[in-house]
């Protein structure tokens, strides 16, 4: 009797925890460091993200080589000269949603939150703070965010010949539709 009660309690907690965890493998990460001289933008639609609304923990991961550029040469330079994706194939973000309790999963709405964490890219880890928006509509959860980074912070050096065509500041926009983690 006691054992079955314990088991059902355990089941209940596990299920309860599970219902708070959401993930996606189809997250989108856009990258833009265009200048007036040249459009330099890429999109990655294979980002993986997990978010736990019980604790506020959130994680993102992208494969650098999965960024798609319009021009092959740009994609090659991005991988070989700037991101060195053979040595650093991934970029990851691990953080925490500050005011996660404000997000009510059962209630439709738009929730603006602050996420603080660490971005690991090109072999450099740096703290990052991002404003993000969670939208809950009919049980579906989606999130968007936009951050700006300085390439120099991540040891990405721009050769002086092209320094006017590449912005020193890169804008990263992310978007995800989350599903329940089973």
């Amino acid at each position: 009797m006691k054992k079955s009660l314990f088991l059902s309690l355990l089941m209940f907690t596990v299920m309860g925890l599970n219902a708070q965890k959401y993930f996606t493998k189809e997250g989108k990460v856009n990258f833009d460091c265009s200048t007036s001289i040249e459009k330099i933008a890429a999109v990655n639609s294979k980002a993986t993200s997990v978010v736990d609304f019980a604790t506020g923990a959130i994680e993102w991961g992208v494969l650098v080589k999965a960024f798609k550029f319009e021009k092959a040469l740009m994609q090659e330079h991005f991988n070989e000269n700037y991101m060195e994706s053979n040595t650093y194939p991934k970029a990851t973000f691990k953080g925490k949603i500050d005011n996660v309790a404000s997000i009510q999963l059962g209630k439709d709405g738009t929730y603006n939150v602050v996420i603080k964490g660490t971005l690991d890219m090109h072999g450099v880890s740096k703290p990052v703070t991002a404003n993000a928006t969670f939208v809950i509509k009919g049980g579906a959860i989606s999130a968007t965010s936009k951050i700006k980074l300085l390439l120099a912070d991540y040891n990405v050096t721009i050769p002086s010949v092209v320094k006017d065509s590449i912005s020193k500041e890169v804008t990263i926009s992310i978007a995800a539709d989350y599903s329940v983690f089973k």
Partner: peptide
Amino acid sequence: GKCTGYLMDVVLV
């Protein structure tokens, strides 16, 4: 496809 690496899955583009 072209292999880009491994996160939770192996991804080909």
